[in-house]
């Protein structure tokens, strides 16, 4: 256990938080289903960066690298399923506008 002052950690954290804000804003504001997926992708990018930075500063980069590899595989599968759903919605309604698909309300 050694106490360390990590001065060079903060710029990365700023970057991570900013990416989070961008992704979240995109997810909330957009009306296009594909763009919502892009927002999710940017969120995941922010997390990937966060995990790598954490591994770098805490000296566990082997652990975090293997976590990130697993995460990327899962991310790819989830985006594939999501794209399948979007294409399905498009085939049924002929549009990608999320205002047209409000058949189900909370």
């Amino acid at each position: 256990m050694n106490i360390q002052v990590l001065a060079d950690l903060w710029p990365f954290m700023v970057c991570v938080i900013t990416l989070f804000v961008i992704g979240f804003y995109c997810l909330i504001v957009t009306l296009n289903l594909i763009r919502a997926l892009i927002g999710i992708e940017i969120l995941i990018k922010a997390i990937t960066l966060l995990i790598i930075v954490v591994g770098y500063v805490s000296g566990h980069s082997a652990l975090t690298q293997s976590l990130v590899i697993t995460m990327i595989v899962i991310e790819a599968v989830i985006i594939t399923i999501a794209v399948g759903l979007v294409v399905g919605i498009y085939r049924k309604t002929g549009s990608l506008d999320s205002r047209n698909i409000r058949n189900l309300k909370g």
């Binding site: 256990m1 002052v5 990590l6 903060w10 710029p11 938080i17 652990l63």
Partner: peptide, 26 residues
């Protein structure tokens, strides 16, 4: 705002890992 905050992380870091090769870990 975040850059102006400039938080210094003073962490009591856990011990470094024993195994450094990502292939072995994975």
């Amino acid at each position: 705002i975040l850059s102006a905050l400039d938080i210094k992380f003073s962490l009591k870091l856990p011990a470094h890992e024993t195994e450094n090769d990502v292939r072995v870990v994975l």
